[in-house]
Design a binder for these strands. Sequence first.
DNA 1: GTGCCTTTGTGAAATTGTGCACGAGCCGGG
DNA 2: CCCGGCTCGTGCACAATTTCACAAAGGCAC
Lengths: 221, 221
Amino acid sequence: MVGSPSGQSIPEATVSRLPLYLRSLQELMDEELSTVSSERLAEMAGVNAAKVRKDLSYFGSYGTRGVGYDVEYLLLHIRRELGLTHDWPCVIAGMGNLGQALANYGGFSDRGFVIAALVDANPDKVGTTVEGVPISHVDDLDDLVSRLDIHIGVIATPAHAAQDVADRMVAAGVTSILNFAPTVITVPDGILVRKVDLAVELQILSFYQERRQAGASLTGA
Amino acid sequence: MVGSPSGQSIPEATVSRLPLYLRSLQELMDEELSTVSSERLAEMAGVNAAKVRKDLSYFGSYGTRGVGYDVEYLLLHIRRELGLTHDWPCVIAGMGNLGQALANYGGFSDRGFVIAALVDANPDKVGTTVEGVPISHVDDLDDLVSRLDIHIGVIATPAHAAQDVADRMVAAGVTSILNFAPTVITVPDGILVRKVDLAVELQILSFYQERRQAGASLTGA
DNA sequence: GTGCCTTTGTGAAATTGTGCACGAGCCGGG
DNA sequence: CCCGGCTCGTGCACAATTTCACAAAGGCAC
């Protein structure tokens, strides 16, 4: 079981670190380095060296003892594991501030996520374009998704519209959803949802910040 | 030690769920419900009921057996734990697409995070305003942070500028940083950093999406 | 007041994730 | 060919988190 490439069981925690390794390896490529040690990679990714080695070992043994990992080979391999050997066409729903920013944000297309379609419910916005991509009406989701072979949908609508849009996406054939709306959406089995709530992170910071100040006033003056 | 309110040790995992409970409780307030069971709250927050009870128990026992939790009381309590009884002035650095979207995004100020200042390194942008907040030059960070009593900084710059901005923020007195730049930043002890990488989430989706397709072609037709 | 129903609060078990420590394997030099 | 130094791969112990299961306790009907 151990060491078998493409084994079924890659820990979730490991998966969530793969993008970090990928990014670090890309930087190393830019610096034209051909090999990298787990220690260096760990430092770049902001984790611990043992963790890097353990994570990479789930995919088999690609390192060379005494030397390190081959940057190019590892890069290719992780990219393949992450399914980034081809581009992913995506649709963004909700062209408010957040949706527009996401559509404009270069960080997606850089990494293989092509904004193939944009939709909104507001007829006034339909027809305008963002970054050369026309905004369609949300009613056209079905057509867009099947015609452009879209599997990934991004929800950037207000909270109250999120569930409806999610339902439409699923009905249209989307199987993975990234939800930026601050609400829980429910989907059928087999549909994968990840959630990013920008304000949640600030609230977590706030928690620790408040604690620190409270603590400081106890221990401090 | 158990049940002591404000005990030192609230698990990180619990803290990261508090904002979800808070949001759910706000919805319940809007619906004018006065009590809620752990089961209902769990459903709204998208977690498991036992987890809700355990999470809440770290703050002491605020529920009534046979009845549930008092919505208003619990709301107030979590808000206090999260340090959201007052507003937090924040500064956003980097007024590109992402920074502008964050500044425009209503979801922050709704929850007590007031955009007090905006900075950018580009002189052309300095002087213009976003949502009524003027963009200052990044060199003025020091002055802004101390004058407006800012503790929280948001980095929305390109990756290559993030570390420099983080250093400046720390020097100016910021103690909590939310980093949207796709890079690891290092800060002195005592400074708290949280990281949101929009593309990372898509890559994680991509991983599972790819696996699913691979699996489907084995088990399916 | 008694009994029943409901829902909390919480030990304890199960699962998941982390970090250490060290054997194993590779490289370069003599 | 052998040796010393370096770095991977991994078993193991430990820590964190989740989940289960159930006793304890409030509320309501009668």
